[in-house]
């Protein structure tokens, strides 16, 4: 089966006053039709930067994609023109964001904001777009759709606004929906509702979802495949069940250990020692070596490659390399 999205060797660098930040460093990623892939990692590990690179929405003043290929439905998105890219955005590629409260324009009505991409990409008349907007509001589970369409963002709650964002995103039946921490700003019960809604969309429309989160609970609920990122690099790729059963990379193991388990009293929750490294001073070592409890000599001097284990799992860690490769 051909992948809908195939990202190869993608690097996105940000300029900062301290130097160049390798926000995304040689990223490999694959999303198949109708599949949900979760990118998981701590804040600042490059999850969002990866998604924004895929949408080609990294502001030029901030940073740029420096290398790699982004294949989407047979096209390299790095090579298509700005105009073609614009026509893909909101149409075949849609995105929802972390902060529903600030992601909608405060001075335009909800209806207007849903209608915009429909009129832009599907060429519907204003009237038809209006009808479709109301349909979409109902579809994402908000009652009194007609009134909601006439209201402004400040009149709605965060959960409702995120539903509206989803309505906008699915308005043109995208093939890929990128969800960048869509539930992080919402409280837990609303989170569950939003996740349900996304699963429903995935099941009914066979939309592929690239789901970005730092919440392993969400990963367990949503993902088919999981990509674990650390400091801009992919450290592990695995189907979801295998990842939770047998995490390979020490970072993934640490993440899973630091997750609270229900009905289990522990004095203190495990946390991975140390801090995320300063992104401007990364050297040749494995980026995780100084926090790793299984660190080898080679980890301090050389980065491990992302190696395909042949079982659908990939891991970038010297522990899983042959002795001869490690050079010990």
């Amino acid at each position: 089966m051909n992948a809908l999205v195939e990202i190869q060797n993608l690097s996105t660098y940000f300029k900062s006053e301290q130097g160049v930040v390798k926000a995304v460093d040689a990223l490999e990623l694959r999303v198949h039709e109708g599949e949900t892939v979760c990118i998981v990692g701590e804040s600042g590990c490059g999850k969002s930067a990866a998604a924004m690179s895929l949408m080609r929405l990294i502001p030029e003043a901030v940073g740029s994609i420096v290398s790699g290929e982004i294949w989407f439905a047979g096209r390299d998105l790095r090579k298509v023109s700005k105009e073609e890219m614009r026509k893909l955005r909101g149409n075949e590629l849609a995105m929802i964001f972390q902060e529903p409260m600030s992601s909608l324009n405060p001075v335009l009505t909800i209806g207007e904001q849903i209608m915009e991409p429909i009129m832009e990409h599907q060429g519907l008349s204003k009237k038809a777009a209006q009808a479709r907007a109301i349909e979409l509001i109902e579809l994402v589970g908000i009652p009194r759709a007609k009134e909601i369409a006439k209201s402004y963002p400040y009149e709605l709650s965060g959960g409702m606004l995120q539903r509206i964002m989803i309505a906008i995103a699915i308005s043109c039946n995208p093939r890929l929906l990128i969800a960048d921490e869509p539930t992080t700003a919402l409280d837990v019960t609303i989170q569950a509702q939003i996740l349900d809604l996304l699963r429903k969309i995935k099941d009914e429309a066979q939309t592929a979802i690239l789901f970005i989160t730092h919440d392993l609970g969400v990963v367990a609920e949503m993902a088919d495949h999981v990509v674990v990122m650390y400091a801009g690099k992919v450290v592990e790729v695995s189907p979801v069940v295998e990842l939770f059963e047998e995490p390979k990379h020490p970072y993934t193991q640490g993440l899973l250990r630091s997750k609270p388990v229900l009905n289990q009293r522990r004095a203190k929750l495990y946390s991975i020692p140390g801090q995320v490294p300063n992104p401007t001073t990364l050297g040749e070592s494995c980026y995780f070596h100084d926090r790793c409890d299984q660190c080898l000599d080679i980890c301090r001097v050389k980065q491990p490659p992302l190696r395909d284990g042949g079982d659908g799992r990939k891991v970038a860690c010297w522990l899983y390399e042959e002795e001869s490769v490690r050079g010990q």
Partner: peptide
């Protein structure tokens, strides 16, 4: 602002993003 990013993510023309979404808020 986030809503300008949203407008771009919707695939609106840059002209619309600037004049409809950004300018109106900047004029307030």
């Amino acid at each position: 602002q986030d809503f300008v990013r949203t407008a771009r993510a919707k695939g609106l023309k840059e002209k619309v993003v600037l004049h409809k979404h950004a300018l109106r808020n900047a004029l307030l």
